[in-house]
Design a protein around this nucleic acid. Structure first.
Lengths: 203, 203
DNA sequence: GGCAAACATGCCGTTCATGCACCTTCGTCT
DNA sequence: AGACGAAGGTGCATGAACGGCATGTTTGCC
């Protein structure tokens, strides 16, 4: 099992809650990707997700948060894959393989994640919320790194923060660059992580 | 000269504009630090800064942005100090010394910066905006690093992103830790940057 | 002095955001 | 099985936020 939290099967209530949340974030992403952030209201998102407008704010505090929620799932999946990597790999190796694993599997999730990234680059108002998502996932990744190396000091935090920074940069550079295929993205991320592994100082 | 942008002395209009902006961000920080983010309205901030409520949104899109604007000045100062470091120092050395220089000088600015950090830790709604400030400064720092090493590829971006990540983490760890003096903060930042210099991988 | 651009302000409508009360649905206990 | 408590979903009301537009005022430049 990859998710290390809930062991008992979630009840009907939990599943409905998750379904509502998923419907809301999917609707938010779809509408905003189609019409632009400014031309979508919370009411429209709620309507598209078949819930009352008031219900929307039980899940998200604003439409920006709903849009980037898809990226949150991707980041959480990355942490799960990292925890599942064999102990033989070094920390950065395991991280790189986890990234590759996440990209290779969930097609729909992966595409949502990339859609969010594209949106965040063209819509400045989304950037703060996208960064907040990364910061949240960063704490989880730091805990996972701490578990892996058996040490809970500064290193896991620095490692997690630097990794997500490289991930964010690499995706940006990939979207800016000429080659838009996944292999180019893997190479970009690998090169970024290699720089972290090698040490960042320069004379 | 440290600021490498404007060469001609700014006219009266520019100075008044800057004064208004400064008054607004100072008022925002003071009121929010005193009463909490939720209990301060944009109208109150504008009133305290002696401008019309409508004028506020010519400068900031929301009160959160006004509060973290103080941190933006601190980050911009760091980039300036980094550019001023002698060429003999390595990149991370220069960054560390720039941090020390910023902390040692501007007493008022430094305290505002730290106040923002403290607020951002107790007020989750501020976190996205604080991170956005760092991301903006990150681009400037990457450009400065590129100028220093004479290379505009991936390395400057990774270096700037990792540095700001370490800075953010170190300040957080310092605020959490027992010793609240500036020497402890310098040590924390130095240790974090040393980890970046050494390379982050672990077996 | 005069002119054009930029800034500050007021007005107004839309959207956002949240507290409160109520209803429905789910989980659990007996 | 039936009942009860808890939690989610909904509607309503209210205050704040946000942004376009028109207007007066200041600034920079000729």
């Amino acid at each position: 099992m990859l998710t290390g939290v809930t062991v008992e099967p979630p009840g009907l209530r939990e599943r409905k809650k998750l379904a509502t949340r998923t419907a809301l974030r999917a609707a938010a992403l779809r509408l905003v990707a189609r019409d632009g952030l400014e031309r979508v209201t919370v009411d429209q998102i709620a309507l598209a997700a078949d819930v009352a407008p008031r219900t929307f704010r039980h899940y998200f505090s604003c439409k920006e948060e709903a849009v980037v929620a898809s990226a949150q799932e991707g980041a959480a999946a990355l942490v799960d894959r990292f925890r599942a990597r064999p102990a033989g790999e070094s920390v950065l190796e395991a991280l790189r393989e986890a990234v590759v694993a996440v990209m290779d599997e969930g097609e729909a999730t992966s595409r949502d994640h990339l859609t969010v990234l594209r949106l965040a680059r063209t819509t400045p108002a989304l950037q703060p919320w996208q960064l907040a998502v990364l910061a949240t996932a960063e704490a989880d990744l730091a805990a996972a790194v701490a578990d892996r190396v058996g040490e809970s000091g500064r290193y896991p935090q620095v490692c997690a923060a630097a990794t997500f920074a490289v991930l964010r940069l690499s995706l940006g550079r990939w979207l800016d660059g000429p080659a838009a295929d996944l292999d180019a993205l893997r190479a970009e991320i690998g090169a970024g992580l290699a720089e972290l592994a090698r040490g960042l100082d320069r004379p």
